[in-house]
Amino acid sequence: MTMKKKYALYPGCLMPTEQYAYEVSIRETLPILGIDLVDVEGFSCCGEPMKSVNQFLTLYLSTRNLAIAEKHHLDLFVPCAMCHLALSECHHVLEKNPAMKERINSQLAAEDLQYTGKSQIVHTVDLLHDQIGIEKLKEHVKKPLTGLKIAAHYGCHLIRPSEIGRPDDSENPQKIESILKAIGAEPVNYPQKLDCCGAPLLANLPESALTKTGQKLQAIQEQGIQALVDVCPWCHKMFDSRQTKAGETVATKLDVPVLYLTQLLGMAFGLSAEKLGLELNLSPVEKLQQEATG
């Protein structure tokens, strides 16, 4: 008998307002693996999107969210790489700066909140790889994705800066690859693996953002890779939701199936396309579904 591990699901902004496929597949797959996700009221933006405008606002918003989780005595599961960075960096900064912690806490008191720094912060990748573990993932595989050549995209914010502690290595991350192997797929090493998705430029240079996306997807397509898997709603918004537009920037018809890792995992667990929100992906994921079943 394994213990159920409880986490507050910190949804952030992008996943719960448009990147529904991630949330749907998270809520389907993680409970199978003994993870109990708790919905908590009152969270706000993590603050990271405002870092260019005012870093102090970022810190304040992150602290507030961490304090809400603490109030419920819960660790946090943070599926967005950008939110995960903001909350982790906040924890790191406040550990080193007790005066800042005091100052923010004095303001948070008005909302009856207090930050001490006791909640653990996990992301999809370390939750699956380190907390749940590869062996347990293997136990649940019903339809191994045998022979499927899949590229992993980690996302810059997930793996840097290593100084504050990130879920995987900054230069040679391998945890998604290990997970892919566990579900029978064949992870592909490709030179563009660490290239940025472009999303951080969406706010002020959207054309350039899409060009970054297009360049990476084009390289993946040219290498005959069958799918790209990602673990961040921002990266996915670029690679999947905006793939057609990204193709226009590099004058290429892009045709790369892009899935959230939790969707791919669910496929290997034998869950239906509907349960995994596969109809929400705008990239041609049906190609992969055919290959996986055929």
Partner: peptide, 19 residues
């Protein structure tokens, strides 16, 4: 760009955009 819009949204609903 859109930074001001996101900030306004955070201020009114706490998130950079609504559903």
């Amino acid at each position: 760009g859109k930074y001001t819009g996101m900030l306004q949204s955070i201020l009114s609903i706490g998130l950079i955009q609504d559903i």
